[in-house]
Simulated assay, not measured.
Amino acid sequence: MGNRVICMKKKDVAIRTGGDGSRSKRVSRSQRKLLGDEEMLHRRALSMAIHQAQLSQRFDGSVSRRVGSTSSRRQTLSDPFSNNKQVPDLVDSLAVKKVVLVHGEGFGAWCWYKTVASLEECGLSPVTVDLAGSGFSMADPNSVSTLEEYSKPLIELLQNLPEEEKVILVGHSTGGACVSYALELFPEKISKAVFICATMVSDGQRPFDVFADQLGSAERFMKESQFLIHGNGKDKPATGFTFEKQHMKSLYFNQSPNKDIALSMISMRAVPLGPMMEKLSLSTERYGKGRRFYVQTLDDLALLPDVQEKLVRENSPEGVYKIKGSDHCPFFSKPQSLHKILLEIAQIP
Score class of each variant (00 low, 15 high):
residue 6 I to G: 12
residue 6 I to N: 09
residue 9 K to N: 14
residue 11 K to F: 15
residue 16 R to D: 14
residue 20 D to P: 01
residue 22 S to N: 12
residue 22 S to M: 13
residue 24 S to M: 13
residue 25 K to E: 14
residue 29 R to Q: 11
residue 32 R to M: 13
residue 34 L to T: 10
residue 35 L to N: 11
residue 36 G to V: 06
residue 37 D to N: 13
residue 41 L to M: 09
residue 52 Q to L: 12
residue 54 Q to P: 01
residue 57 Q to S: 09
residue 66 R to N: 10
residue 67 V to L: 13
residue 71 S to P: 10
residue 72 S to N: 00
residue 75 Q to F: 04
residue 81 F to K: 05
residue 87 V to L: 12
residue 88 P to T: 03
residue 96 V to S: 02
residue 98 K to Q: 13
residue 101 L to R: 03
residue 102 V to S: 03
residue 105 E to R: 05
residue 112 W to H: 02
residue 113 Y to G: 01
residue 113 Y to M: 00
residue 116 V to M: 03
residue 127 V to A: 13
residue 131 L to S: 07
residue 137 S to C: 11
residue 138 M to F: 12
residue 141 P to L: 09
residue 146 T to I: 05
residue 148 E to G: 14
residue 149 E to S: 13
residue 154 L to W: 03
residue 162 P to Y: 07
residue 169 L to M: 07
residue 169 L to D: 06
residue 180 S to V: 04
residue 190 I to C: 09
residue 194 V to H: 04
residue 213 D to A: 15
residue 215 L to Q: 08
residue 223 K to V: 10
residue 230 H to Q: 04
residue 232 N to I: 01
residue 232 N to A: 11
residue 233 G to N: 08
residue 233 G to W: 05
residue 234 K to E: 15
residue 245 K to L: 07
residue 250 S to P: 04
residue 254 N to R: 04
residue 255 Q to A: 10
residue 256 S to M: 00
residue 271 V to F: 08
residue 288 G to W: 01
residue 294 Y to C: 00
residue 294 Y to N: 01
residue 301 L to W: 10
residue 305 P to N: 00
residue 306 D to I: 08
residue 307 V to N: 02
residue 310 K to S: 07
residue 312 V to L: 02
residue 316 S to G: 03
residue 318 E to H: 04
residue 327 D to W: 00
residue 328 H to M: 02
residue 329 C to M: 09
residue 337 S to F: 07
residue 339 H to M: 10
residue 341 I to W: 01
residue 342 L to N: 04
